[in-house]
Computed example of a mutant assay.
Amino acid sequence: MPNHKICSMAFSKIYSLYVQKAEKKNRTEEEVIQIICRLTGYSSDCLANYVDGETDLATFFAEAPTLNPNVSLIKGVVCGVRVEEVEDPLMRKIRYLDKLIDELAKGKSMEKILRS
């Protein structure tokens, strides 16, 4: 398994970047929270502990209660890479989240983003 630099970054730092990206496009932090909780199975209260802490991204995903069973519906390109073709399981999870936040910033409805 390749050791990607992003895996050792603090989730709180990545989270703040996601929120900034969303807010620049007139979306809300609550929508970012909803997306992350839906993908990972964390409750919003539990997620708040990670947002305030120094847990790295690898640990954040390793401790996630359950990945949403509909992740296979997340398809497309993030940073020039097809999400569904990423082989490393951790990087695939990170790319899933990146893709969902990208969709939020591009103005998609929450129903479509959450694959409801």
Rank of each mutant, 00 (worst) to 15 (best):
N3P: 09
N3K: 13
H4V: 11
I6D: 04
I6G: 03
F11M: 07
K13V: 15
S16P: 02
L17R: 15
L17S: 15
K21G: 15
K21W: 11
A22R: 04
A22L: 06
E23V: 12
E23N: 12
K25N: 14
T28N: 05
E30Q: 15
E30G: 13
E31D: 12
I33F: 10
R38E: 04
R38W: 07
L39T: 02
T40E: 03
G41V: 11
S43E: 12
S43C: 05
S44M: 02
C46P: 00
C46D: 10
L47V: 03
L47M: 01
A48I: 11
A48L: 10
V51K: 15
D52W: 05
G53N: 12
E54A: 11
E54C: 09
E54D: 14
T55K: 10
T55R: 09
D56M: 02
L57H: 04
L57K: 05
A58C: 08
A58G: 04
A58D: 08
T59S: 11
F60P: 08
F60E: 02
F61A: 02
A62R: 09
A62V: 02
A64P: 01
A64W: 03
P65Q: 08
T66R: 13
L67R: 07
P69V: 06
N70D: 11
S72V: 02
L73W: 09
L73S: 13
L73F: 13
I74Y: 01
V78C: 14
C79V: 05
G80Q: 01
V81M: 10
R82Y: 06
R82Q: 09
V83Y: 04
E84A: 07
E84H: 07
E84K: 03
E85L: 14
V86Q: 07
V86T: 02
E87W: 02
D88K: 12
M91E: 07
K93F: 02
K93R: 15
E103G: 07
L104H: 01
K106M: 06
G107E: 03
K108I: 00
M110T: 07
K112G: 04
S116D: 14
S116T: 13
